[in-house]
């Protein structure tokens, strides 16, 4: 399958990134190059998927509160705060 400039634009929008016309053109070419080379996967032998390289089980712990960041620490890295809360853009 071939990726079109429209696909690149659609994916970028989903990923919340704005691309210039030049970038769309470049990425369209790059992605087609890459995915064409990756066609080797089509003929590869498969098995059950491995989501981790080593088998891991679920990890549980007792639901007991532990020490966490203070409100002040959590807010220290942002300019956008008010009354002990993060301040964000409007949702609608």
């Amino acid at each position: 399958m071939k990726i079109t400039e429209e696909t690149v634009e659609r994916v970028a929008k989903l990923a919340r990134i704005e691309l210039s016309a030049r970038e769309v053109k470049k990425f369209e070419k790059d992605l087609n190059d890459i995915l064409t080379a990756f066609k080797t996967l089509d003929e590869a032998p498969t098995a059950e998927p491995s989501f981790q390289p080593i088998k891991l089980g679920n990890v549980m712990r007792d639901d007991e509160p532990e020490q966490c960041l203070t409100n002040e620490e959590a807010l220290r890295n942002t300019k956008h705060k008010e009354k002990g809360f993060f301040k964000g853009p409007k949702a609608v």
């Binding site: 990923a15 990756f38 996967l41 089509d42 498969t46 098995a47 059950e48 998927p49 989501f51």
Partner: peptide, 25 residues
């Protein structure tokens, strides 16, 4: 962009899941 594409509905099985299966091999 590449990673978002590989996980998109319609391509997920062909790319992302396939890669995870090949990884087992």
């Amino acid at each position: 962009i590449l990673g978002t594409f590989a996980r998109m509905s319609g391509y997920r099985e062909q790319y992302y899941m396939k890669a995870m299966r090949v990884r087992t091999q």
